[in-house]
Design a protein around this nucleic acid. Structure first.
Lengths: 119, 119
DNA sequence: TAAGTATATAATAATATCCTGATGGAGGTG
DNA sequence: CACCTCCATCAGGATATTATTATATACTTA
């Protein structure tokens, strides 16, 4: 009985994972976007996403080249309420609103920055 | 911003600590009672209580020989709501209702069981 | 099919967590 | 004072967590 909830809370017991949930409360995001917004490596982001998925907080779907993650809509009410109240950094919100997915990642190939891909 | 909440959730991310909070949602309890109700050693209980106190979930007060722990009344609303909904094992409820504090611990000295103290 | 991007997994190292047994202090009581 | 109970802390070892780098897999597209 307590075990199930303790596993959920362990999934929430990490600042990076809460950061991810905060971002996803603004809009769905693909992994490469999360990598840009978070101060950790791409494999670290993948592993956090796996834990969030195992805990039942996020789902994934594939679109073009990217794997998108989204908050699940069947969250336990307590968790849903928490995420509604969770503040999101203003810098994240503005990044998410000014970057279209197709622009933020691969489409940069064509930019004059000479960047290839997200990272 | 996320760090503060991740620390709170880490404190909730353990089955024994959730068990303690469930017990304290029924009534205040002293350490020796918790030791009887939980399947771990007395030092383990003390260490869990310290974490719960550091996370701001419980307070302590001394009464006679015993140190009592109680849920704090200024919990973040999300946490308070969670604890209201958290089920408590029926066996714990009945133990807590049939044992008066003074009886459950040291006063057993006088019982015919020959027990001395709680543990 | 070949090349490149996006993502996941493997291997590993540093650190954190959680248990137990041992020890010690605080306070009550004969 | 002497002893006993309650509780906290210390010391340790086993396991879990979280990061990184290196590598593998999957999908797109030319």
């Amino acid at each position: 009985m307590y075990q199930e909830w303790s596993e959920r809370f362990r999934a929430l017991g990490d600042g990076t994972r809460l950061h991810i949930l905060g971002i996803l409360s603004v809009r769905d995001a693909c992994v490469c976007e999360l990598v840009e917004l978070l101060p950790v490596s791409q494999p670290a982001v993948s592993q956090h996403l796996r834990k969030l998925k195992q805990a039942g907080f996020v789902r994934e779907y594939r679109q073009k080249s990217w794997v998108f993650y989204a908050l699940r809509t069947d969250l336990p009410p307590v968790i849903a309420a928490f995420l509604r109240d969770l503040p999101v950094a203003e810098s994240d919100v503005s990044w998410l609103s000014t970057h279209e997915v197709a622009v933020s990642c691969a489409a940069r190939d064509a930019s004059e920055l000479g960047l290839r891909g997200c990272y």
